[in-house]
């Protein structure tokens, strides 16, 4: 039985009719076509599907879409303003923190939320903040460097 819900994603309200067991990542990707949010393990271990819900990072594979109603959901598609990248995105580009790119959206979302609460972090704090997001390409060093650079650019 489908259920009517309203989801607010990247500032836009969507009126949707979905099955109540659908997870947020499924609705974002399959219903709204926002495929920038990636799906891999589907059990909250890899962090690829991270989005922000009221500015807090969540694994969207573990959130039912119905329970995301009434929240401000931000995905990777909602960060850049026209062609101007968000400072965290800009730092990822400048610091060569991207390789295959599959973990990148989740990493960027976590970093954005983390820096909002911790504007002057240490590298160790950054590492802890992104420890729920797996990357196999980079060895994390340039991702940590990028997040530190984004923090510095903000101060």
């Amino acid at each position: 039985m489908k259920q009517d819900i309203t989801l607010k994603v990247n500032g836009i309200e969507y009126h949707l009719s979905i099955e109540p067991q659908r997870t947020l990542v499924e609705v974002l990707r399959d219903t709204l076509g926002l495929t920038g949010t990636k799906k891999s393990c589907n059990e909250g271990e890899c962090g690829a599907c991270t989005v922000l819900m009221d500015d807090k990072p969540v694994a969207s594979c573990l959130v039912l879409a119905v329970s995301a109603q009434g929240k401000e959901i931000t995905t990777i598609e909602g960060l850049a303003k026209d062609t101007k990248l968000h400072p965290v995105q800009e730092a990822f580009v400048k610091k060569t923190a991207i390789q295959c790119g599959f973990c990148t959206p989740g990493m960027v979302m976590v970093a954005k939320a983390f820096l909002a609460e911790n504007p002057k972090p240490t590298p160790a704090q950054v590492r802890k903040a992104i420890s729920g997001n797996l990357c196999r390409c980079t060895g994390y060093q340039q991702i940590v460097d990028a997040i530190m650079a984004a923090a510095e650019a903000n101060t």
Binding site: T37, T75, I76, L79, L85, Q89, F92, V93, I98, G101
Partner: peptide, 8 residues
């Protein structure tokens, strides 16, 4: 591909 990847 950096800008393409970082914007999803």
């Amino acid at each position: 591909d950096a800008r393409i990847k970082v914007t999803g």
